[in-house]
Design a binder for these strands. Structure first.
Length: 269
DNA sequence: TACATTGTTCCGTC
DNA sequence: CGACGGAACAATGT
């Protein structure tokens, strides 16, 4: 599952492949991924335009084009941007491609099709982008601001962390890792966190993101659930294994409908 | 064969 | 109106 670090790697890759390049030809398949206009309309928006820059906010990407049009991209659970040669054939599960003139042929691959491509020909900011909260990597997430927003929430802290309007880009993996680092039980009511705990939580989010980012950098990202991939995380998907801190057996529960691993000794309720 | 699993967005309810 | 639980989505594993 791509979360903030993987999406940031995708942004850097797209930027290196496309920045300043003219788009020779775009192809968008007719799948549920294409939104905000027909696949044909998205292609027309891209064809012949020069790419100005690639931005990220939370788990959303956007490609800004000269003239003001914008292509938004969300990777969902299994989406990836990869670069090939223009002469290379269609990849398995390839849903779109953007061929740069005198450059790479950039392909969007997404087996499960939870991802999205949204065209904004007039450069409009789509609602999903506008609704995103502060981005932890951009330094926008402060302990005080997070604590203030958490006072209104009585549900489990883990569920609150998954709300993209609170902290953009934190998903199930980063939330699980950050709570373990901060020694906070996933079921603690969000509005019951002490200031020191909010500080530890923000530190944990930053540390987890930075560490994942360092491990995932490269032109091809591997997601943890893919066959043959090794799990780079400290506790995510490691129920039954010893806690890396105290060796107590890690426990798995379900919070907000999602698998949640924690250490019953380090993370007390 | 049917069902659980997976993360996020969307939707209905309180 | 905001919080929150559950449904839907596509594919895979049991």
């Amino acid at each position: 599952m791509p979360e903030l670090p993987e999406v940031e790697v995708a942004r850097r890759n797209l930027s290196s492949w496309l920045d300043g390049k003219r788009i020779a030809r775009a192809k968008v398949e007719a799948t549920r991924i294409a939104r905000g206009g027909s696949p044909r309309a998205i292609e027309r928006m891209l064809d012949g335009k020069r790419v100005a820059s690639v931005e990220r906010r939370g788990k959303w990407l956007r490609i800004l084009l000269d003239g003001g049009a914008i292509l938004y991209s969300h990777l969902g659970m299994s989406g990836k941007w990869v670069a090939r040669d223009a002469s290379d054939g269609k990849l398995p599960h390839e849903r779109a491609r953007i061929d740069a003139a005198r450059g790479r042929s950039v392909r969007y691959v997404d087996p499960r099709m939870f991802g999205r491509l949204v065209a904004a020909p007039g450069g409009e900011e789509i609602a999903e982008w506008a609704a995103l909260g502060p981005d932890p990597l951009a330094g926008g997430l402060s302990p005080k601001a997070l604590a203030a927003r958490l006072t209104r929430r009585s549900g489990p802290i883990k569920a609150a962390l998954l709300d993209q309007s609170l902290a953009a880009g934190v998903g199930n993996i980063q939330a699980t890792e950050a709570l373990w680092r901060a020694k906070i039980h996933p079921l603690r009511p969000a509005n019951a966190l002490a200031p020191a705990e909010a500080r530890r939580l923000v530190d944990g989010i930053h540390a987890s993101i930075e560490e994942t980012l360092a491990k995932q950098s490269g032109p091809e990202i591997t997601y943890v659930e893919e066959a043959g991939a090794e799990n780079p995380f400290l506790v995510y998907d490691r129920a039954g294994q010893p806690c890396p801190r105290c060796r107590t057996k890690l426990t798995r529960i379900v919070v907000a409908g999602r698998g949640t691993v924690f250490c019953p000794r380090c993370q007390r309720r």
